[in-house]
């Protein structure tokens, strides 16, 4: 059972993600997670204030079930076969984390940064609240996120998705090389 505890290498995970996308296509659906947040807005009544949310979310119900599954998948790993070690990022990355003063501790995310008491500090607010807002806003503006554009869209050789992924990297590189050092140094 050791393979369940150990982190999985990229050449296992990548093909399995492709398999998930193909399975959804076979089920007559397309892989794209960020649109579930639009459905959640509609369920919450956002259709009363914006035309964008007046759509038949029930046709997207399968996707809400899919993300409920994703939640359960995370829960199962954490309950039964979590990796007790810190995420094995490269030496150079550990050095960068040290430079920024971000603790490299066991677990999937740095909880010294992501925690309730940090929410109302400037770095905590920017990372969690502003960061989350940009993810939601940007994904809808671009018409998709990593699953819809970087995986499904690129697999279908769509130019719009290539543009979106170029954008993901412009933004991501700017945050990592300019905003994070400014926030933490």
């Amino acid at each position: 059972m050791d393979w369940l505890i150990q982190p999985w290498p990229w050449y296992v995970a990548g093909p399995l993600i492709a398999l998930i996308m193909i399975t959804l296509l076979w089920f007559g659906k397309s892989f794209g997670v960020s649109s579930t947040m639009r459905s959640l807005c509609t369920i919450g009544g956002a259709g009363n204030v914006a035309e964008f949310f007046k759509f038949d979310w029930k046709a997207q119900r399968w996707n809400l079930i899919f993300i409920a599954g994703a939640f359960i998948g995370g829960f199962l790993v954490n309950q039964f076969f979590p990796d007790p070690n810190p995420v094995a990022v490269s030496e150079a990355t550990v050095q960068e984390l040290n430079n920024l003063g971000i603790a490299h501790e066991p677990g999937l995310i740095p909880t010294s940064l992501f925690n309730w008491s940090n929410l109302l500090t400037v770095p905590g607010f920017i990372v969690m609240i502003v960061g989350g807002f940009l993810v939601g806003f940007g994904a809808r503006y671009a018409g998709g996120c990593t699953s819809g554009h970087a995986i499904s869209g690129l697999s279908n050789l769509q130019t719009p998705s290539l543009l979106a992924v170029v954008g993901f990297f412009i933004g991501g590189l700017f945050t990592t090389h300019v905003i994070l050092p400014w926030l933490f140094k």
Partner: peptide
């Protein structure tokens, strides 16, 4: 795509998570 993607990327590198991982991390 370029502008929306850039906004998304700014957020992705802050939160370290795109939408799928957000649900999975809570799990």
């Amino acid at each position: 795509y370029l502008l929306g993607g850039t906004i998304f990327g700014l957020g992705w590198a802050l939160t370290g998570a795109c939408p799928g991982p957000l649900y999975i991390l809570i799990g």
